[in-house]
């Protein structure tokens, strides 16, 4: 079942000018129609055997793209092909060749054992009954759930559930895998194990599309990354290429207490400032200010922060995270 390949030279995943709009209504008596453009003209190609990352903040459109690719959503416009098959015209053929693994702890039958969850999906994916048991044991081993198969899923930790999602997606040994934030909410050790399985699958030649908003995850796993913001791809390349895009920047980190919103707004208005992010750490705030290369910012920032208790201010080298922040906050 894992032998399906696109025609020579054809990408495994081919998305051309994909648009997806959701229509919804609000209000009880006076209904108002709302249109939300979740994906706005996305084009991407993933080559066979490639591990491609779709990186973006919540609501950027990552899950929508994956759901279109998994045939669970129809595109509003554009063309989407998996292994050369159109997801709108040949959904059943596409479903045979893909595995879909999503994040979170829902989407499993809690009252059933892990084995029964997998048995059910083994039938839904039309696995030959005589080899189902072997294959189920194999995927349970692969995701580190050996010996836990007979336990009910309701007693599983979030990490175990995530690994069961993974096992389910791999059951029919599909050549193309979609991972939608597979480590979300999983503890660091569990997340590292999930990442290891993803890396092993990529080494085994699977084509993988992974969505995440964890920078290091994309950096450590992906051959190529597309950064998506507000439904559009704002950058695409290898992790190194994306980092290179911000090396010509100055990054200043400020640890301070009680920075007023007006002060942050005034920092943003400085002509050389490209992006400002604020992270709350206990009582303190960590402001990360990105500015054009060579900017002499420190003095001006301290002026603007007059009256605010500043614990630390330092310039540092830009990272992939800075590249990401710059990309998703631009415009």
């Amino acid at each position: 079942m894992s032998t399906a390949r696109p025609l020579s030279g054809e990408p495994a995943i081919d998305v051309a000018d994909l648009r997806r709009t959701y229509r919804t209504t609000t209000g009880t008596l006076r209904r108002h129609r709302l249109e939300i453009e979740a994906v706005r003209g996305v084009t991407l190609r993933v080559e066979p055997g490639e591990l491609f990352g779709l990186l973006g903040p919540n609501g950027a459109g990552k899950t929508t793209i994956i759901r279109v690719l998994c045939t669970l959503l129809l595109p509003t416009s554009g063309q989407v092909r998996v292994l050369g098959m159109d997801v709108v015209e040949r959904p059943r053929d596409v479903r045979r060749q893909i595995g879909y693994v999503f994040g979170g702890d829902r989407g499993l039958y809690d009252r059933l054992s892990a084995l029964d969850n997998l048995r059910y999906f083994a039938d839904l994916y039309a696995l030959e009954p005589r080899m189902q048991r072997k294959r189920i044991n194999e995927v349970l081993d692969l995701v580190g759930l050996q010996g836990r198969g007979t336990e009910r899923v309701e007693g599983f930790s979030r990490g175990m559930r995530q690994r069961l999602h993974l096992a389910r997606g791999l059951l029919h040994d599909p050549p193309v895998l979609f991972f939608d934030e597979p480590t979300i909410g999983v503890d660091p050790v569990g997340a590292r194990e999930v990442r290891q399985v993803v890396a092993d699958l990529a080494r085994a030649g699977k084509t993988i599309l992974l969505t995440t908003h964890y920078m290091f995850e994309a950096d450590s796993l992906c051959d190529r990354i597309a950064v998506i913001a507000q439904g559009q791809i704002v950058a695409e390349g290898t992790p190194q290429q994306l980092k290179a895009g911000v090396t010509a920047r100055t990054v200043v980190e400020i640890e301070a207490y009680g920075v007023p919103e007006q002060t942050v707004a005034r920092i943003r208005e400085l002509p050389e400032v490209e992006a400002v992010t604020i992270e709350v750490r206990d009582q303190a705030q960590l402001l990360t200010v990105q500015a054009s290369e060579g900017s002499q910012l420190t003095g001006r920032l301290l002026q603007l922060l007059e009256g605010v208790r500043v614990e630390r201010i330092a310039a540092r080298e830009p990272t992939l995270e800075d590249a990401y922040v710059a990309l998703v906050t631009a415009g």
Binding site: D123, L127, R135, D173, L201
Partner: peptide, 9 residues
């Protein structure tokens, strides 16, 4: 990735 050959019913 799969030691067991996955066959379709």
């Amino acid at each position: 990735m799969s030691a067991v050959t996955v066959q379709r019913a």
